[in-house]
Amino acid sequence: MSLLKGIAEAFSLILTLDPYLTQIVLLSLQVSGLAVFFAALAGVPLGTYLGLKPQERTRFAGKLLYTLMGMPPVVAGLLFYLLFSRMGPFGVLGLLYTPTAMILAQFVLAVPIIAALTMIGIRSRGKDVQETARTLGAGRLLTAWTVVRESRFAISGAIVTGLGRVIAEVGAVMIVGGNIEGHTRVMTTAIVLETGKGNFELAVGLGLVLLIISFVINSLLYSFQGGGKEIA
Protein backbone atom coordinates (compact mmCIF):
# COMPACT_ATOMS: atom_id res chain seq x y z
CA MET A 1 0.00 0.00 0.00
CA SER A 2 1.44 3.34 -0.96
CA LEU A 3 1.42 6.18 1.50
CA LEU A 4 -0.47 8.43 -0.92
CA LYS A 5 -3.21 5.89 -1.41
CA GLY A 6 -3.44 5.49 2.35
CA ILE A 7 -3.79 9.20 2.86
CA ALA A 8 -6.46 9.43 0.17
CA GLU A 9 -8.46 6.63 1.79
CA ALA A 10 -7.88 8.18 5.19
CA PHE A 11 -9.38 11.42 3.96
CA SER A 12 -12.42 9.63 2.62
CA LEU A 13 -12.85 7.93 6.03
CA ILE A 14 -12.71 11.30 7.71
CA LEU A 15 -14.95 13.09 5.22
CA THR A 16 -17.61 10.38 5.26
CA LEU A 17 -17.52 10.42 9.07
CA ASP A 18 -16.80 6.72 9.22
CA PRO A 19 -18.68 5.52 12.34
CA TYR A 20 -15.78 3.48 13.76
CA LEU A 21 -13.36 6.35 13.34
CA THR A 22 -15.83 8.95 14.61
CA GLN A 23 -16.60 6.93 17.70
CA ILE A 24 -12.90 6.56 18.54
CA VAL A 25 -12.22 10.25 18.02
CA LEU A 26 -15.16 11.24 20.22
CA LEU A 27 -14.08 8.87 22.98
CA SER A 28 -10.55 10.29 22.84
CA LEU A 29 -11.88 13.80 23.18
CA GLN A 30 -14.12 12.79 26.05
CA VAL A 31 -11.49 10.90 28.00
CA SER A 32 -8.73 13.46 27.52
CA GLY A 33 -11.14 16.39 27.82
CA LEU A 34 -12.50 15.20 31.14
CA ALA A 35 -9.03 14.31 32.41
CA VAL A 36 -7.81 17.80 31.57
CA PHE A 37 -10.93 19.43 32.96
CA PHE A 38 -10.37 17.85 36.36
CA ALA A 39 -6.62 18.35 36.09
CA ALA A 40 -7.28 22.06 35.56
CA LEU A 41 -9.52 22.16 38.62
CA ALA A 42 -6.64 20.78 40.67
CA GLY A 43 -3.62 22.12 38.81
CA VAL A 44 -4.63 25.76 38.37
CA PRO A 45 -5.20 26.43 42.08
CA LEU A 46 -2.04 24.50 42.97
CA GLY A 47 0.03 26.37 40.37
CA THR A 48 -1.47 29.67 41.45
CA TYR A 49 -0.67 28.97 45.08
CA LEU A 50 2.93 28.02 44.27
CA GLY A 51 3.33 30.90 41.83
CA LEU A 52 2.46 33.43 44.51
CA LYS A 53 4.93 32.00 47.00
CA PRO A 54 8.48 33.32 46.94
CA GLN A 55 10.43 31.22 44.46
CA GLU A 56 13.08 30.15 46.97
CA ARG A 57 10.39 28.69 49.20
CA THR A 58 8.86 26.55 46.47
CA ARG A 59 12.08 25.17 45.09
CA PHE A 60 11.33 21.61 46.14
CA ALA A 61 7.73 21.69 44.95
CA GLY A 62 8.94 23.16 41.67
CA LYS A 63 11.50 20.41 41.17
CA LEU A 64 8.90 17.80 42.01
CA LEU A 65 6.45 19.24 39.50
CA TYR A 66 9.06 19.40 36.76
CA THR A 67 9.98 15.79 37.45
CA LEU A 68 6.37 14.67 37.33
CA MET A 69 5.87 16.71 34.16
CA GLY A 70 8.34 14.41 32.49
CA MET A 71 6.72 11.24 33.80
CA PRO A 72 6.43 8.75 30.93
CA PRO A 73 2.77 7.90 30.29
CA VAL A 74 3.51 4.18 30.55
CA VAL A 75 4.71 4.72 34.10
CA ALA A 76 1.44 6.42 34.99
CA GLY A 77 -0.33 3.55 33.26
CA LEU A 78 1.59 0.96 35.21
CA LEU A 79 0.91 2.76 38.46
CA PHE A 80 -2.83 2.82 37.86
CA TYR A 81 -2.80 -0.73 36.58
CA LEU A 82 -1.30 -1.90 39.86
CA LEU A 83 -3.71 0.26 41.84
CA PHE A 84 -6.86 -0.75 40.00
CA SER A 85 -6.16 -4.37 39.23
CA ARG A 86 -8.38 -6.71 41.21
CA MET A 87 -5.33 -7.68 43.24
CA GLY A 88 -4.46 -4.03 43.85
CA PRO A 89 -5.58 -1.81 46.71
CA PHE A 90 -8.47 -0.30 44.72
CA GLY A 91 -9.38 -3.51 42.90
CA VAL A 92 -12.84 -3.73 44.40
CA LEU A 93 -13.86 -0.63 42.47
CA GLY A 94 -13.63 -2.64 39.25
CA LEU A 95 -12.14 0.32 37.41
CA LEU A 96 -9.48 -1.43 35.36
CA TYR A 97 -10.30 -1.43 31.64
CA THR A 98 -12.83 1.38 31.96
CA PRO A 99 -12.77 4.95 30.63
CA THR A 100 -12.73 6.11 34.25
CA ALA A 101 -9.33 4.51 34.80
CA MET A 102 -8.05 6.15 31.62
CA ILE A 103 -9.31 9.53 32.78
CA LEU A 104 -7.60 9.06 36.14
CA ALA A 105 -4.27 8.11 34.56
CA GLN A 106 -4.39 11.05 32.17
CA PHE A 107 -5.46 13.30 35.03
CA VAL A 108 -2.28 12.38 36.85
CA LEU A 109 -0.25 13.09 33.71
CA ALA A 110 -1.90 16.46 33.14
CA VAL A 111 -1.91 17.90 36.67
CA PRO A 112 1.86 18.52 36.94
CA ILE A 113 1.94 20.10 33.48
CA ILE A 114 -0.94 22.42 34.22
CA ALA A 115 0.29 23.23 37.73
CA ALA A 116 3.89 23.88 36.65
CA LEU A 117 2.98 26.04 33.66
CA THR A 118 0.42 27.92 35.72
CA MET A 119 3.05 28.48 38.39
CA ILE A 120 5.46 29.93 35.84
CA GLY A 121 2.73 32.11 34.36
CA ILE A 122 1.62 33.42 37.72
CA ARG A 123 5.16 34.17 38.81
CA SER A 124 5.72 36.77 36.12
CA ARG A 125 2.91 39.05 37.29
CA GLY A 126 0.87 37.32 39.96
CA LYS A 127 2.54 38.87 42.99
CA ASP A 128 1.90 42.39 41.68
CA VAL A 129 -1.69 41.54 40.80
CA GLN A 130 -2.20 40.05 44.26
CA GLU A 131 -0.87 43.16 45.98
CA THR A 132 -2.86 45.51 43.77
CA ALA A 133 -6.05 43.58 44.43
CA ARG A 134 -5.37 43.68 48.14
CA THR A 135 -4.66 47.41 48.20
CA LEU A 136 -8.05 47.85 46.56
CA GLY A 137 -9.75 45.92 49.35
CA ALA A 138 -10.33 42.56 47.69
CA GLY A 139 -10.84 39.63 50.06
CA ARG A 140 -9.01 36.33 49.70
CA LEU A 141 -11.43 34.84 47.20
CA LEU A 142 -11.65 37.87 44.95
CA THR A 143 -7.87 38.28 45.12
CA ALA A 144 -7.35 34.68 44.05
CA TRP A 145 -9.87 35.00 41.24
CA THR A 146 -8.25 38.23 40.06
CA VAL A 147 -4.82 36.61 40.00
CA VAL A 148 -6.17 33.72 37.94
CA ARG A 149 -8.08 36.00 35.59
CA GLU A 150 -5.09 38.25 35.04
CA SER A 151 -3.00 35.22 34.09
CA ARG A 152 -5.69 33.70 31.93
CA PHE A 153 -3.50 33.51 28.85
CA ALA A 154 -0.79 31.61 30.65
CA ILE A 155 -3.35 29.38 32.36
CA SER A 156 -5.25 28.69 29.16
CA GLY A 157 -1.91 27.87 27.60
CA ALA A 158 -1.13 25.50 30.46
CA ILE A 159 -4.46 23.72 30.09
CA VAL A 160 -4.15 23.42 26.33
CA THR A 161 -0.60 22.09 26.67
CA GLY A 162 -1.90 19.48 29.11
CA LEU A 163 -4.62 18.49 26.65
CA GLY A 164 -2.10 18.22 23.84
CA ARG A 165 0.06 15.94 25.93
CA VAL A 166 -2.60 13.52 27.12
CA ILE A 167 -4.56 13.22 23.90
CA ALA A 168 -1.38 12.14 22.15
CA GLU A 169 -0.20 9.65 24.74
CA VAL A 170 -0.65 5.95 24.23
CA GLY A 171 1.21 4.27 27.09
CA ALA A 172 -1.19 4.96 29.92
CA VAL A 173 -4.49 4.45 28.10
CA MET A 174 -3.27 1.21 26.55
CA ILE A 175 -2.38 -0.32 29.90
CA VAL A 176 -5.33 0.82 32.00
CA GLY A 177 -7.91 0.96 29.22
CA GLY A 178 -7.08 -2.30 27.47
CA ASN A 179 -8.01 -0.91 24.04
CA ILE A 180 -11.50 -2.45 24.13
CA GLU A 181 -13.41 -1.70 20.97
CA GLY A 182 -16.25 0.74 21.50
CA HIS A 183 -15.42 1.08 25.16
CA THR A 184 -11.83 2.11 25.81
CA ARG A 185 -10.34 2.38 22.34
CA VAL A 186 -8.99 5.84 21.68
CA MET A 187 -7.10 7.31 18.74
CA THR A 188 -3.61 6.41 19.85
CA THR A 189 -4.36 2.85 20.91
CA ALA A 190 -6.36 2.33 17.73
CA ILE A 191 -3.40 3.51 15.65
CA VAL A 192 -1.16 0.97 17.38
CA LEU A 193 -3.70 -1.77 16.80
CA GLU A 194 -4.58 -0.95 13.21
CA THR A 195 -0.93 -0.62 12.27
CA GLY A 196 -0.33 -4.04 13.76
CA LYS A 197 -3.23 -5.44 11.76
CA GLY A 198 -2.10 -3.76 8.59
CA ASN A 199 -5.17 -1.49 8.35
CA PHE A 200 -3.06 1.45 7.33
CA GLU A 201 -5.96 3.50 5.96
CA LEU A 202 -7.61 3.63 9.34
CA ALA A 203 -4.30 4.17 11.12
CA VAL A 204 -3.36 7.01 8.81
CA GLY A 205 -6.87 8.45 9.08
CA LEU A 206 -6.66 8.48 12.85
CA GLY A 207 -3.17 9.89 12.64
CA LEU A 208 -4.49 12.71 10.47
CA VAL A 209 -7.30 13.47 12.88
CA LEU A 210 -4.77 13.51 15.71
CA LEU A 211 -2.60 15.91 13.72
CA ILE A 212 -5.57 18.15 12.99
CA ILE A 213 -6.53 18.21 16.66
CA SER A 214 -2.93 18.92 17.56
CA PHE A 215 -2.93 21.76 15.03
CA VAL A 216 -6.06 23.27 16.53
CA ILE A 217 -4.64 22.92 20.04
CA ASN A 218 -1.37 24.56 19.08
CA SER A 219 -3.13 27.34 17.19
CA LEU A 220 -5.04 28.09 20.37
CA LEU A 221 -1.82 27.99 22.34
CA TYR A 222 -0.16 30.32 19.87
CA SER A 223 -2.98 32.81 20.12
CA PHE A 224 -2.92 32.67 23.91
CA GLN A 225 0.77 33.42 23.92
CA GLY A 226 0.30 36.18 21.34
CA GLY A 227 -2.58 37.52 23.42
CA GLY A 228 -0.44 37.56 26.51
CA LYS A 229 2.37 39.49 24.89
CA GLU A 230 0.14 41.98 23.15
CA ILE A 231 -1.07 43.41 26.43
CA ALA A 232 1.76 42.71 28.86
Partner: peptide, 25 residues
Protein backbone atom coordinates in the same frame (compact mmCIF):
# COMPACT_ATOMS: atom_id res chain seq x y z
CA UNK B 1 -8.59 36.95 23.56
CA UNK B 2 -11.43 36.73 25.99
CA UNK B 3 -13.32 34.94 23.25
CA UNK B 4 -10.71 32.20 23.27
CA UNK B 5 -10.98 31.83 27.01
CA UNK B 6 -14.71 31.48 26.78
CA UNK B 7 -14.38 29.10 23.88
CA UNK B 8 -12.07 26.94 25.94
CA UNK B 9 -14.50 26.90 28.85
CA UNK B 10 -17.34 26.07 26.48
CA UNK B 11 -15.40 23.24 24.88
CA UNK B 12 -14.59 21.79 28.27
CA UNK B 13 -18.20 22.11 29.31
CA UNK B 14 -19.40 20.30 26.19
CA UNK B 15 -16.90 17.55 26.71
CA UNK B 16 -17.93 17.31 30.34
CA UNK B 17 -21.62 17.04 29.54
CA UNK B 18 -20.97 14.70 26.65
CA UNK B 19 -18.78 12.63 28.89
CA UNK B 20 -21.48 12.35 31.49
CA UNK B 21 -24.14 11.24 29.07
CA UNK B 22 -21.89 8.57 27.59
CA UNK B 23 -20.36 7.38 30.81
CA UNK B 24 -20.90 3.71 31.55
CA UNK B 25 -23.79 3.32 33.91
Amino acid sequence: MRVFFKLLCLTLAIILIGGCSNAPV
